[in-house]
């Protein structure tokens, strides 16, 4: 875990890894470049420099401009697809040459700071499925849906291209059911459910080990080498929310205090508080989220009594845990378990 975490003003995104593709898509849909770039610190001549960078504040502004200028609901879905097939991004190339989905996902997780530093994934396995939960590593505010759609589109496109099937793949989203489901149905073509507790993608285990059609160990190694070289330019950094999430997750059943986390991150307590406010969240919320995700994960994976769970999550007694769980999900733990196993 790197000591420093990035925030909105740190230039951790490569222009070539997303912005150029997004701008090209919007321009082909009739938007003007100077309007798309207005309000950001990006210059037109920097767009094609090989290692040109931008920070998240600019990226969010860019996303907002694109949606204002172009009324095209397909944009995030196309962006995910375009990123996957971009010839500039060696990480995406390496994903396609991977042996199987497992290797591709490991690769994506390891080099995620090169493509989506703003989103972090937590994966776990149940009896039949691999579940990948996606969390924001910094506050995306109203661009959250767009970013998630992009990441999911990339993953789904990879599955479609390399495995040719999406049987059993499910996407769960936190957002409300949108008015118009057509884009999701059309571009993803798998089961999508809304109003869930977490944004996640579950993939049946057999699919994870099925060989990719374009699997090529030599090309994979070459692409991986390029990714490693890129690491020298763009060192791995994690978002603030991801740092806190991981710290707390490792520390369970002990609950971290705000001062503890601030010390670990090399920040003062007040500046941590201020930064969290910028991310539209607060410390208690984050800790709650970690416990919620952990509880859900354990309940899905196996048999664990409420008492054990309460101990694992740092609750003083079973009763408190049950009440918290009901607040998170609307079910008491045993009901949740039976609902999940029934499905």
């Amino acid at each position: 875990m790197p000591a420093r975490s990035f925030s909105y003003q740190d230039k951790v995104l490569l222009l070539q890894h997303g912005s150029t593709e997004l701008l090209a898509l919007a321009q082909r849909r009739g938007a003007l470049l100077h309007k798309l770039l207005s309000g950001t610190n990006i210059f037109e001549q920097d767009l094609h420099r090989p290692h040109g960078r931008l920070h998240h504040a600019d990226w969010l502004k860019l996303l907002q401009n694109c949606q204002q200028q172009v009324s095209s609901p397909e944009l995030p879905f196309l962006l995910g697809d375009a990123l996957l097939n971009s010839s500039y991004i060696s990480l995406c190339k390496s994903l396609q040459y991977a042996r199987n989905l497992r290797q591709a996902l490991t690769q994506l997780y390891y080099f995620r700071h090169q493509l989506f530093p703003g989103i972090f994934a937590k994966a776990y396995q149940t009896q039949q499925q691999l579940v990948i939960e996606l969390h924001p590593a910094l506050g995306f505010a109203n661009q959250h849906t767009f970013m998630l759609a992009t990441v999911f589109s990339l993953l789904v496109s990879l599955l479609k291209q390399q495995l040719g099937t999406l049987t059993g793949v499910t996407i769960r989203l936190q957002q409300d059911v949108p008015e118009n489901l057509l884009q999701q149905q059309f571009y993803w073509g798998c089961t999508v459910s809304f109003n869930q507790y977490c944004d996640s993608l579950s993939i049946p285990l057999p699919l994870c080990y099925q060989t990719f059609t374009d699997a090529d160990p030599v090309k994979f190694r070459a692409a991986k080498r390029t990714c490693l070289q890129l690491n020298r330019v763009l060192s791995p950094q994690r978002g603030l929310l991801e740092c806190i999430y991981t710290l707390q997750q490792r520390a369970l059943p002990v609950l971290l205090t705000q001062q503890h986390v601030a010390d670990a991150l090399g920040l003062s307590g007040s500046s941590l508080k201020r930064q969290l406010r910028q991310h539209h969240t607060n410390f208690a919320n984050l800790i709650d989220q970690v416990r919620r995700d952990a509880a859900r994960k354990v309940l899905q994976q196996g048999n664990c009594s409420n008492r054990q769970l309460a101990m694992m999550l740092g609750y003083s007694d079973e009763h408190n845990f049950r009440r918290a769980f009901k607040r998170w999900t609307g079910f008491i733990p045993s009901d949740y378990k039976s609902v999940f196993n029934f499905n």
Binding site: E21, A24, L25, R28, L78, D81, A82, N85, S157, K160, Q161
Partner: peptide, 15 residues
């Protein structure tokens, strides 16, 4: 069409 996009790039697909 996604295959065409992949072969020729998304710009060609849009065109």
């Amino acid at each position: 069409f996604s295959g065409f996009n992949r072969r020729c790039g998304m710009a060609a697909g849009d065109a």
